[in-house]
């Protein structure tokens, strides 16, 4: 059933986001095309086209965010919820399917942004020899990090995913908490969002101030500013952040699941 939910979720969201991705790539290509032919003379067309590109880029990230909220709020908690919640599917599967697809589009938006940058700068990268420089830079970085390179990449990927999951679930939990209110559900959701954010910040502050001060002191004392210290510190900070986001994400997921399965009251 989760697979089927994912399929419908992908369809429902793709129809909004895929045209925006196409528009971004086309506008990147047009910008490149105009700049190639306008030469050093008249720059106004290039400027307008680049401005449009940036507008679409900003619009794309805004829409990725809006679609994430809308799919949860409208598909589950408005009239469409009458269908979704009468399907013989466990509530957690609804939440997980929406979460996974939201993460997928977040990642896709970054990939498309990256692709559009390549479209606009392909000649600099491939023709004018920027690529070997980039490759050299990456090799040097790998040398510095040594055997830790893979671990660092893994930490960055996991950290980004944990951050996205956290960001999505805090919104789901806020909407679900707002749903508990009999009226003014949107205002209640906003209030819940502020509350949950404040809670996360206070918890983060408590956790970082108390035990971490000692850990950081320990690093400073033992290996004064050596490269190893920096790398070890980086690992420590990354795993701490991943763990923190994962811990809160589980909490927010449980809140959302509890409310939608035990306290549902569709208007």
């Amino acid at each position: 059933m989760l697979g089927k939910l994912l399929k419908y979720e992908l369809k429902a969201t793709g129809r909004t986001l895929l045209p925006i991705y196409a528009a971004l790539l086309i506008s990147a290509a047009v910008t490149k095309f105009i700049s190639l032919f306008s030469g050093s003379g008249d720059n106004i067309p290039t400027f307008i086209s680049a401005f449009l590109y940036i507008l679409i880029l900003v619009g794309m990230f805004v829409m990725t965010f809006v679609v994430m909220i809308q799919r949860f709020n409208r598909n589950l908690l408005s009239d469409e919820g009458y269908l979704m919640f009468t399907l013989p599917v466990e509530t957690w599967k609804h939440i997980v399917s929406k979460l996974l697809i939201a993460i997928f589009w977040n990642v896709a938006s970054f990939v498309v942004t990256f692709a559009s940058i390549i479209v606009m700068t392909y000649d600099e990268i491939f023709v004018e020899g920027l690529w070997p420089q980039i490759a050299r830079g990456l090799t040097e970085l790998a040398l510095v990090l040594g055997p830790d390179s893979c671990l660092v990449i893994l930490e960055i990927i996991l950290g980004s995913i944990a951050c996205m999951v956290f960001g999505t679930l805090i919104i789901y939990a806020s909407i679900a908490l707002g749903h508990l209110s009999n009226r003014h559900r949107t205002m209640a959701s906003l209030g819940a969002f502020l509350g949950l954010t404040a809670f996360a910040q206070i918890l983060f502050a408590c956790l970082t101030l108390i035990p971490n001060v000692r850990v950081l002191q320990h690093y400073m004392d033992t290996l004064q500013e050596s490269l190893q210290t920096s790398i070890a510190l980086f690992h420590y900070v990354m795993w701490f952040t991943i763990g923190f986001f994962a811990f809160l994400s589980v909490g927010y997921f449980l809140i959302t699941n509890h409310i939608l399965s035990k306290r549902l009251n569709l208007e």
């Binding site: 009458y82 919640f85 009468t86």
Partner: peptide, 9 residues
């Protein structure tokens, strides 16, 4: 009817 469908608690 909504109670019977678990749309209300």
């Amino acid at each position: 009817i909504k109670l019977a469908n678990a749309l209300l608690t």
